[in-house]
Write a protein that binds this DNA or RNA. Structure first.
Length: 271
DNA sequence: AAAAGCCCCTGGATGC
DNA sequence: TGCATCCAGGGGCTTT
């Protein structure tokens, strides 16, 4: 579920409040994608200094080490002064001096991993192969075009893979390609320079606007205060199969690429 | 190296 | 109402 906008909205909703907090206790529920990697009791007494984001990972910087949090498909974080008794899908609770952080994740594709340092094997393995941050100045048009030239897979799947540019998931890949007017099935290597420039701008535009709208809430996403997002109401193609294109009224098409649904307008998006 | 498939897991929607 | 089937914001791992 959560793509870059949802993860960033989550980060913004509690980063300031947790910064400087001392960890009182940590409780783990059912197993997540990977084990925590240390005894939870070992985290008590440490301080959460800041919350950063890298791709779809949240990084809680401690005074010693860091905690990587991934929301998977169905995860969401809550941060409150007091949390109710943990429910069946609450798999990580961290009580701090400034409030309690909780991960709720029904499908358990998410993860909470402790790494003793930035360059610890756990962190390197998970973050090492990630592409450039799309909203940063590092997302250079010429380099983006050059990277696409090296890939023959369909552009939609290259965006999703995350090794060229991070944070673009299934909703925003379809949306960005619509904005750029590019057919999702087009081999990345055949995208011209001007179209790569447009795609770069479209990715930045759609992600930034989604953050502004609080992300997309399709079924259960909410920020750390339980507030839903509204970007799904502005989607041009995602989940709109058969409905009229908002630009030309042609019916939106749905295809499957790598077991994931892709939505596009055959009239507005050229091969 | 790159690409394509396969899973991990639960719950909601749909169909008979 | 009950049960089977399909589908879902991700991504690491294995196989071609």
């Amino acid at each position: 579920m959560p793509e870059l906008p949802e993860v960033e909205v989550t980060r913004l909703s509690f980063a300031d409040r947790i910064a400087g907090a001392r960890i009182v206790s940590v409780r783990m529920g059912k197993p997540l994608r990977w084990p925590l990697g240390c005894d939870p009791a070992l985290l008590a007494g440490r301080t959460v200094q800041a919350v950063r984001r890298r791709g779809k990972y949240l990084l809680l910087d401690l005074d010693a080490g860091l905690i990587l949090v991934h929301l998977g498909m169905s995860g969401s974080l809550a941060f409150a002064d007091h949390l109710p008794e943990p429910g069946a899908h609450d798999h990580f609770d961290m009580v701090t001096s400034r409030g309690a952080l909780r991960l709720n994740d029904p499908r358990r594709f998410g993860a909470v991993v402790f790494a003793p340092a930035q360059d610890a094997p756990q962190a390197v393995k998970l973050l090492g192969g990630l592409g450039v941050e799309p909203l940063s100045d590092q997302f250079d048009a010429a380099a983006f075009h050059a990277a696409l030239k090296r890939r023959n897979a369909p552009i939609k799947q290259v965006l999703l893979a995350g090794d060229v540019v991070v944070g673009v998931g299934n909703i925003y890949a379809s949306e960005a390609l619509f904005i750029a007017g590019i057919r999702p099935t087009m081999p990345a290597s055949r995208i011209s320079r001007p179209r790569a420039v447009r795609l770069r701008a479209a990715v930045r535009d759609v992600l930034a606007r989604a953050v502004q709208k609080g992300g997309s809430t399709l079924r259960d996403f909410s920020n750390a205060h339980g507030q839903a997002g509204y970007f799904q109401l502005e989607a041009m193609v995602y989940d709109r199969a058969g409905e009229p294109c908002r630009q030309c009224a042609a019916p939106i098409r749905m295809i499957r690429q790598g077991q994931r649904a892709t939505y596009y307008c055959a009239h507005c998006q050229k091969p």
